[in-house]
Simulated assay, not measured.
Amino acid sequence: MREALFRCKSTRVALAALLSLTALTSCSSVAPSARNAEANHDIGTPLTAQDLAAWNIDVAPDGRGLPAGSGDVATGAHIFAAKCAACHGAQGQGGLGDQLIGGQGTLTSAKPKRTVGSYWPYATTLFDYIRRAMPYTAPESLSADEVYALSAYLLNQNGVVPANTRLDAASLPRVVMPNRDGFVADPRPGRL
């Protein structure tokens, strides 16, 4: 009886090995691209150009990638009070979040203050950062108009642009930041 049971288990193991080998052989005889084309595992959804556009929101220092829209300093002040002051302080002096206003002339001191007006080299990267990361509790929730307005407000409060400024994709890249020349250029080809 014991010998018959052993043979039965051996037969099952041998059969399983044979079936596995057959499956591997049949899989390997089909080209990888054909296997992938035939397989439909119902996993995921093909991405559309519209899906990719939602993720392609980076803005380059020269302004490439800036969206349509515009915003002015006065509107930015209202948005800042409603959506930014809780973390950055009513006057941009800092709090839970970083100080955004002031700091000019401190970068070479023992306690530099890296703010929008003292440190950032490009106004376009300010736009990019606000658009992607702010407000902290709801990143990417601001419209393009709101981000342009916040950028105008912060630049105005740092003395970079006048109070009647309206920024858009054409004007924002032309803003010259006080510390634009305070950075070393990237020597690699194709870099700004």
Results as ranks from 00 to 15, higher is better:
40 N>P: 00
42 D>F: 05
42 D>G: 03
43 I>Q: 08
43 I>Y: 07
44 G>L: 05
44 G>Y: 06
44 G>V: 05
45 T>D: 04
47 L>M: 11
47 L>C: 09
47 L>E: 09
48 T>A: 07
49 A>R: 12
50 Q>D: 06
50 Q>C: 00
51 D>S: 09
53 A>W: 00
57 I>H: 10
57 I>C: 09
58 D>I: 13
58 D>M: 14
59 V>Y: 10
59 V>A: 13
59 V>I: 15
60 A>R: 15
60 A>T: 13
63 G>S: 07
64 R>G: 12
65 G>D: 09
66 L>F: 03
67 P>N: 03
68 A>H: 05
69 G>E: 03
69 G>K: 06
71 G>W: 01
71 G>N: 00
72 D>M: 05
73 V>N: 13
73 V>F: 12
74 A>D: 13
74 A>S: 15
74 A>Q: 15
75 T>M: 04
76 G>W: 03
76 G>H: 06
77 A>K: 09
79 I>K: 02
80 F>T: 02
81 A>W: 03
82 A>K: 05
83 K>I: 02
83 K>N: 06
84 C>S: 02
84 C>L: 02
85 A>R: 01
85 A>E: 02
85 A>M: 00
85 A>C: 05
85 A>I: 03
86 A>H: 01
88 H>W: 01
88 H>M: 06
88 H>S: 06
88 H>K: 07
89 G>I: 12
89 G>N: 10
90 A>Q: 12
90 A>K: 13
90 A>I: 09
90 A>G: 09
91 Q>E: 14
93 Q>F: 06
93 Q>W: 08
95 G>H: 08
95 G>E: 07
97 G>D: 03
98 D>M: 11
99 Q>A: 14
99 Q>K: 15
101 I>Q: 00
101 I>A: 01
102 G>K: 11
103 G>C: 10
105 G>V: 06
105 G>S: 11
105 G>F: 08
105 G>C: 12
106 T>E: 12
108 T>N: 13
109 S>I: 08
109 S>P: 11
109 S>W: 08
110 A>D: 13
110 A>S: 14
111 K>A: 14
112 P>E: 11
112 P>K: 08
112 P>G: 10
115 T>M: 05
116 V>R: 02
116 V>P: 02
116 V>K: 01
116 V>D: 04
117 G>F: 00
119 Y>Q: 05
121 P>K: 13
121 P>Y: 10
122 Y>N: 12
123 A>R: 09
124 T>D: 10
125 T>C: 05
125 T>A: 08
127 F>S: 10
129 Y>D: 08
129 Y>N: 11
129 Y>I: 04
131 R>C: 08
131 R>F: 14
132 R>D: 06
133 A>Q: 15
136 Y>P: 07
138 A>S: 15
139 P>W: 12
141 S>I: 03
141 S>R: 04
143 S>M: 02
144 A>L: 04
144 A>D: 13
144 A>P: 02
146 E>F: 04
146 E>R: 02
147 V>E: 10
147 V>I: 07
148 Y>S: 08
148 Y>E: 03
149 A>M: 05
150 L>D: 07
